[in-house]
Amino acid sequence: MADQHAIGSRRGLKPALPLLLPAYLWLTVAIFLPLSAMVFFSFMTDLPLAGREWAFTLDNYAAFFSQSLYLTLLLASLRLGLEVTLWCVVIGYPAAYVLAKVLKGRSREAIFLLVILPFWSNGLVRIFSWAMVLREGGILDTALNAVLPFKINIDLMYSYPAVIIGLVHSYVPYMVLTCYLTLQAIDDSLIEAGRSLGASRRQVLWRVIIPLSMPGLIAGAALIFVPVVGSFMEPRILGGRTGTFYGTVIEDQFVAVFNWPLGAALSFILLAVVLVILAVASPMLKRAA
């Protein structure tokens, strides 16, 4: 590895430019320009469309701080992000472990495909199929009542759990994939060494495997937490009235209220908060590992 470093530093950046440029040009055009426009909008009183009057203002940012609703919703969204991330760890990590350390050959490929499948299905289709499962008289309700001797009433539709279920379903593959990659890189002889030294399987898991798979857990958590905090589709469709989160409010500003400047300002506040959280959390998690 030391050799690779040496070669990389000797060559410098110049020969790498032709390789880097396409990606960065694309990012500049596709993300940086529209985003800059949004930054610009967020400081305006109104959209400069159809000859409307507009001026620069900080009111959009001030709105966040003057109305407690936004802060409440932001905290609710952060909690949602945290809960979904935790469930993804709880569900995804064991699956990744089994995929990386227990299964071999064809059965591994088959199970892997099942994990990736949600990625290949359309997001809206996924969410509406959950709606069919979760609502009263839906698939889950009917199935449970057909099996159980007593009558129960399952109506998870338009509830917080429904939002969690939908989001976890959408995002758990990220956790499985990132953890699978780090777990697979852990040499089996490390596990054997731990056990030969008298550690139980549980002790080996906590002291060797989890610390060594921390990079995968962190990467997975970041990939899940950030989009979930800003999510709006699952909360709106599966959460109904209870599904009002920070993300849905931003969406409203763009598609319903047409207050783009406020929507943009709320987005950038979210971006800032998420960046601060990641900046604080990642070194802490890294140290734990």
Binding site: D187, S189, L190, E192, R195, S196, G198, A199, L212
Partner: peptide, 17 residues
Amino acid sequence: EKRRIGMVFQNYALFPN
């Protein structure tokens, strides 16, 4: 883990963390 043995592995298997 209950046999009270010591083992040295071919690739050493030291815990990198």
